[in-house]
Amino acid sequence: MSDLPVRDEYGFYEIRLESIGGLGANLAGKILAEAGILNLGFNGSSFSSYGSEKRGSPVKAFIRFCDSDCEVRINSPVTEPHLIAVFQENLKQILPVLMGMNDKTRVVVNTARTAPAARDFLEMPGGTLYCVDALKISREEKVKLNTTILGAVCRASGFLAKEALEQAISDTLGKKYAWLVPANLKAFNRGFEEVEILEVPDDGKYPFQPFRESPPRWGYGNAPIGGTITEIASTLRNDLSASREGLLPFFIRDNCTDCTLCESTCPDYCYVWREVEKDGRKTMVNTGINYQYCKGCLRCVDICPSQAIEARNESEVDTKKLSRVSIW
């Protein structure tokens, strides 16, 4: 029988998964809860930060474990997790994914970086870091990312028995997707094995960020009544690059014939066109992609008749340098 390594004042060991919709964090939470409750004999709960569940939008999943005879009473989100798993590292750029952690917290991150580089990328103040290249592993095993990350979470937890999670994975997939079980178990085991662990020194390089609900900019004192929004076109402030799942389009101007097909297919209006003078006539030309809004769907890659758009790995493209500024 396993025992919880630590408990908070309410008796819980708490896990927070930081992800984007579509990567299976919610299912990972369910698998964790089932492993802990049904197979290891803890009591507990699992739930997610639901909004409108679109692929690519930030989502959190929460898992709580306590002793079997302890009542689960708290229904609010996990704010001071013992373990955090970051499914998509670029989330760091738009959200405080490590908020509420302390020097005992274990952090799992899906990254192709080395552990020290990942530490700096995440600006992790202390604790223990577990790096796993889940994207690579899950692509190789042709499975969703979540089971690979579960492997690393299992390793990082130090108390969730591997067999219990393997059982829960098989049970969850087993009924309807039996043929997916072996590959997922392999991915899970690779996730468990192929982690790089780093004890992050509490060297003051980055500050710990205590949990805090950020107060809204608009409230009852200043918001236009009725919920009306007067700041038009304001979603232009959003950075959607964290929605990409590894691949992005790369534009090759020399091959482009300005046929406008990419413009007609891009759901995120990323192609930037400019007016130029050509042979004494004014015409529009395609100047490339605004990567701030590109979600990496690759519709444009498939549609381009002139090989002017290629799919590349995110890590191979300097999006900061190549990104175009939209003209509205």
Partner: peptide
């Protein structure tokens, strides 16, 4: 259609729809 790429958009980027 090429000329129309220069037309200002009434709905802009940054929305939260799924990729594609």
């Amino acid at each position: 259609l090429r000329e129309l790429t220069g037309m200002p958009k009434r709905v802009v980027s940054g929305h939260r729809a799924c990729p594609g």
